[in-house]
Simulated assay, not measured.
Amino acid sequence: MAGHSQFKNIMHRKGAQDAKRARMFAKIIREITVSARSGLPDPAANPRLRAAVAAAREANMPRDTIERAIKKATGAAGGEDYAEVRYEGYGPAGVAVIVEALTDNRNRTASDVRSAFSKHGGALGETNSVSFLFSRLGVVRYPASAASEDGMLEAAIEAGADNVESGPDGHEVTTSVDSFFAVRDALESRFGVPESAKLDWRPTTTVTLDEEKAGALMKLLDVLEDNDDVQSVYANFDIPDSVLQKMSA
């Protein structure tokens, strides 16, 4: 399994499901907050907010919770003021790691991220210290039922996308950063709101890990993902299926 997207569901984790669900909701609500403040509070007129609401629905967040988050973000009180921050560093075995966060306290988040790296065999670096090992691109995902493979491919090409991969799990359309919003809007007008639409980091090279190194890296990624301020984690690792089977046994 390659670490080419946000790290999650690599291994089955037991217990604390309610706490994990609450953390997921908190992260989505932060994105809704930032999205609502970055444009109009109407999802129909604010693409980023529309994507955040779609993510909330995919996570089965109650409608009233979504509406309260939007109202709080745009109300007189305004709630917390979140800043978007990116951290970069190396994990165990020299795996490059990018961490994206939304925080209302940069010092706290930087300290937490730095501590996670240092305690789990890694080192936090400067901005752009590892991003050169990744490509920045737009990714739009639809369920397989949204269109046939040919239908999605045709629509994506017309919209200006770079690539389409279709299979039983759905369609993944990738674009350049410059074309992302135009492609997303064109596909949305044809197939409806996507399952997800976001800018992504994809590694250009990967580090293959054995069981020991994979276990060490998983601990770091777990800690980072469990941090309330962290929205996404990307890493350029590859774990062979044989190693995954041993780790999940």
Rank of each mutant, 00 (worst) to 15 (best):
T33M: 11
V34G: 06
V99N: 07
F132S: 15
S115Y: 13
G94W: 01
G151Y: 07
A55G: 10
A96R: 04
E80H: 11
A73L: 03
S129E: 12
F134S: 02
P62V: 15
V140E: 04
R50M: 14
L102T: 02
I28S: 02
A83C: 06
Y82Q: 03
F117P: 15
G138T: 03
R106L: 12
F117K: 06
A147N: 06
I66D: 06
N107M: 05
R57I: 10
S111K: 15
I32Y: 05
A77V: 15
G79F: 00
G39M: 01
A96E: 08
G125H: 01
G151S: 06
P41I: 08
G91S: 07
K27L: 01
D112A: 08
G78Y: 04
F134R: 05
G39E: 00
A56H: 07
F25L: 01
A101G: 13
R30E: 09
A59L: 07
E84F: 09
D150R: 14
S131G: 03
R108P: 00
V85L: 14
R114T: 08
Y142E: 00
G79E: 10
R50S: 10
Y82G: 05
A73Q: 04
T65Q: 12
R37C: 05
V130Q: 05
T65Y: 15
G125P: 14
S135M: 11
A59K: 03
A83R: 15
F25S: 04
I66K: 10
I66Y: 02
E149P: 15
H120M: 08
N60P: 12
G91E: 13
K72D: 04
A146K: 04
K119F: 10
F25H: 06
G91L: 07
S111Y: 13
E149H: 13
A96D: 12
E31C: 06
R37D: 02
I29S: 02
M24G: 10
A147Y: 06
F132T: 12
E31W: 10
I70C: 01
T33F: 03
P43I: 15
G138P: 04
G78K: 06
E88L: 08
I32A: 00
D112N: 04
H120G: 09
A159S: 02
G94R: 05
N46I: 01
A156S: 08
A45F: 15
G39W: 00
A116K: 12
P62M: 11
A155Q: 00
G79A: 09
P41S: 15
G79Y: 02
L133M: 13
G151K: 06
V85G: 02
R50P: 00
E149C: 14
V130S: 07
S129P: 14
M24N: 13
T74M: 07
D162S: 14
L153I: 09
A156Q: 08
F117H: 04
A156G: 05
V95R: 10
E88T: 03
N60G: 13
